[in-house]
Design a protein around this nucleic acid. Sequence first.
DNA 1: CGCATTTTTGAACCCCGTCAAGGCATGTGG
DNA 2: CCACATGCCTTGACGGGGTTCAAAAATGCG
Lengths: 235, 235
Amino acid sequence: MGSSGTSCKTCTMRPFCAVNPDELACDRQMDDLVLSYRHVRKGEALHRAGDSFCKVYAVRTGSFKKRSLLPDGRDQVTGFYVAGEPMGLDGIATGHYASDAIALEDSSVCVMPFDLLELLSREVKAVQGHVYRMLSAELVRQGGFSTLLGTMAADERVASFLLDLSQRWRARAYSPTEFILRMTREETGSFLGLKLETVSRILSRFQRQRLITVNGKEIAILDFAGLNKVARLSA
Amino acid sequence: MGSSGTSCKTCTMRPFCAVNPDELACDRQMDDLVLSYRHVRKGEALHRAGDSFCKVYAVRTGSFKKRSLLPDGRDQVTGFYVAGEPMGLDGIATGHYASDAIALEDSSVCVMPFDLLELLSREVKAVQGHVYRMLSAELVRQGGFSTLLGTMAADERVASFLLDLSQRWRARAYSPTEFILRMTREETGSFLGLKLETVSRILSRFQRQRLITVNGKEIAILDFAGLNKVARLSA
DNA sequence: CGCATTTTTGAACCCCGTCAAGGCATGTGG
DNA sequence: CCACATGCCTTGACGGGGTTCAAAAATGCG
């Protein structure tokens, strides 16, 4: 998770972002479209479950976890978000966010008022298409994740997790082989449906098997083919 | 799953369905908006993963399972759909459906060309809002399901599953206490991240505990409070 | 009916969770 | 600077919930 520089080039919201006017999918007055930024310090919430919904966000710098609570008090991390990825979309359904979004490090986001996005997407077909695709892509991502939780063994989950992170770093032109895990083992475990001890043990085992090196939160991937084999993501 | 009668009254797509012109959220020419129906026989596919996307569907009668395949051949049931519920939305993201949709019994759907829906939602704000909410609601549903797979024990999953079905029957004015499970134990298990034997054992145990009665695919809920307690969906 | 599929139930095994102890950072106050 | 506390990570031993393997009963469909 690079801490400097924005990732506008790979941002999900680029097609309707006024920060790059020449990229904007329409010739609308810029005045209406100016995005604002917001900084969120480590541990603080961008939004909380139940907050009234009126904005969607794109991560600009840093990273976030999304956390959902069950009625009985248990909670689960349901997603990690890094630069360029959209947040807050689950609030559209009811007008209230369905989850907490917590910064894993000092972070910043681009803020897009949702009514503006609605307006723009009625005027400009390309924007409409992008919004739909963005929502649908989140659906697909979530579905793939359910498959992971429903069918994969613990080591497959951890391998998939590492490969997914690597992939997202690569897409943003950061190193796909070496990166920092901003989330704790407990958060990782919660996300993967495992206990923190299990995550730790499996990372240690991957290191013994020369698939990765682990140094606390620093990860280096040594053997992509091997990890893919463990994750069984190929035939 | 009642096999006769449609559920237009509770259908997700009602706000933009030309079958009920007086309900339609705009005064557009009806000619353009006529929905078509399609029948799908038990075991047949409404769409398959990879099929080119151009339509979204609403279940009219019967029921479907959504199935996602992993690259290595394993698959998982990622959803069950009954009357009034939307299908095919995962195709928007890439232009190709991300999953198979298979009829669990002889069923029928309402067909809505997606380009028409896009057009209509640009013209009519109310339609746009409904489409967004529908997509976001699917996101929230999926997220809640991830939480189930990630945090719940087997008996909690089965209890939640039964209560969820009951709730959906109630919303459609069918009996929430007695219904038929159109899916096999294996499909249920795949959906819940369990093996079919585990599902069977837990249903038997619920019956011994007088929470439900099981007779093959016939389920009757005897003790909602007890099931809720097992599912830990209350404090 | 007769065959295939589905469901139920039992018994043994194993992966992962639980419990516990210890290490290693980081930060804080004396 | 050190003593101490705190939070996070690692590792071990053990137990249990769920899977696996197996067989029989029930159901459905031709």
